[in-house]
């Protein structure tokens, strides 16, 4: 049985899929050959010679295979093809496809996958790096509420442009928000169903979404701490490099795919060019608006310093 194809655009890639994915479809006419083809079919039980083989996934240069129990088996090859063998609902198949599976595809294409949300500012993309639960999505929500356009929710893809400058790619034009963030934003009417039937996290298409790749202007690494204040500290080159490695999404997969050398070079270039700061914020209470204030203040100060450095005189600089 053949299914109608859905057309999407994410991370600068045109793709088509017989399975509806949990984000807004591409508005443009699908007359070009897609960069990524998603197909439904039988996925082999194993890869011939995996570099890393775990109980759930295995990888080797050019191929990544993962089994999500009760959802699907996925095979990603050559950064162009995703073969899906569904075992669960289309919705769930799509949710996991846009996570680890798509990250493996990006890694195969040499894209740096950072565990970060990202926004557009006047001076470029600003990334919020953090582990699961560090507050990336909450800070993103607060910044969206202040009118910034979104670039990425959970995984930010970064490529070096021809001039060697780190550039952030627009990810999926949909944000996944927990109930507390939706309460805070008052965006319940805009939700389009839950991410999963039984968890309190909702899909929300973002109209204010930046559709073009954007030079990375700054990155903030979020970390909850058990003290009371918000502390922002600029990283040294060495710490910045460590911090980017630490917040690389699916590091072990990167290793299996043989992409570590490419990744190291890109991350080193990014650490050398992009100001990276560590932001420690109270785990409890979160004080999300105070945090957003501090981030905006830090961005303004950066703009001002850079403006002064360029012109040799003080000038007003603003982000947003």
């Amino acid at each position: 049985m053949s299914r109608a194809l859905h057309h999407y655009m994410a991370y600068g890639l045109r793709m088509h899929s017989p399975i509806a994915l949990p984000f807004a479809p591409s508005p443009s006419a699908p007359d070009q050959e897609p960069d990524v083809a998603i197909r439904v079919g039988a996925v082999p039980a194993a890869l011939p010679a995996p570099v890393i083989k775990t109980r759930l996934w295995e990888g080797t240069p050019g191929a990544f295979l993962i089994n999500v129990d009760g959802v699907a088996r996925y095979l990603v090859t050559e950064g162009r093809n995703i073969l899906v063998e569904p075992h669960g609902s289309d919705h769930n198949v799509g949710v996991f496809l846009t996570g680890s599976v798509f990250a493996a595809l990006l890694q195969q294409r040499g894209v740096v996958t950072l565990h970060a949300s990202a926004i557009e500012t006047r001076a470029g993309a600003v990334l919020f790096l953090g582990s699961s639960g560090a507050g990336k999505s909450s800070l993103l929500s607060a910044m969206l509420k202040r009118g910034y356009a979104m670039l990425a929710d959970d995984v930010t893809g970064v490529l070096l442009d021809p001039g060697g400058r780190p550039t952030a790619l627009p990810a999926f034009p949909t944000v996944r928000l927990w109930t507390d963030a939706l309460d805070e934003l008052g965006w319940w009417p805009r939700t389009r169903g839950k991410v999963r039937e039984s968890i309190e996290k909702y899909l929300l298409p973002m109209e204010r979404f930046c559709i073009t790749p954007l030079a990375v202007r700054a990155a903030y690494m979020l970390r909850p701490h058990n003290r009371s204040g918000i502390e922002i500290e600029t990283c040294t080159l060495h710490t910045a490099f460590q911090c980017l490695l630490q917040h690389t999404y699916r590091k072990r997969c990167l290793h299996a795919l043989g992409q570590r050398p490419v990744h190291f070079r890109a991350v080193a270039a990014m650490a050398g060019q992009v100001p990276i700061a560590r932001v420690e914020r109270p785990a409890h209470p979160f004080r999300i608006n105070a945090l957003a204030d501090e981030i905006e203040r830090s961005l303004r100060e950066r703009d001002q310093r850079e403006c002064e450095a360029k012109t040799g005189s003080p000038a007003a600089g603003a982000s947003g």
Partner: peptide, 20 residues
Amino acid sequence: VRFTFDEFLGLPSSDMTPEE
């Protein structure tokens, strides 16, 4: 911690049910 779960298993715990 969620970080080791996500990294070792290659699955996003934040999109998974407590049972999963």
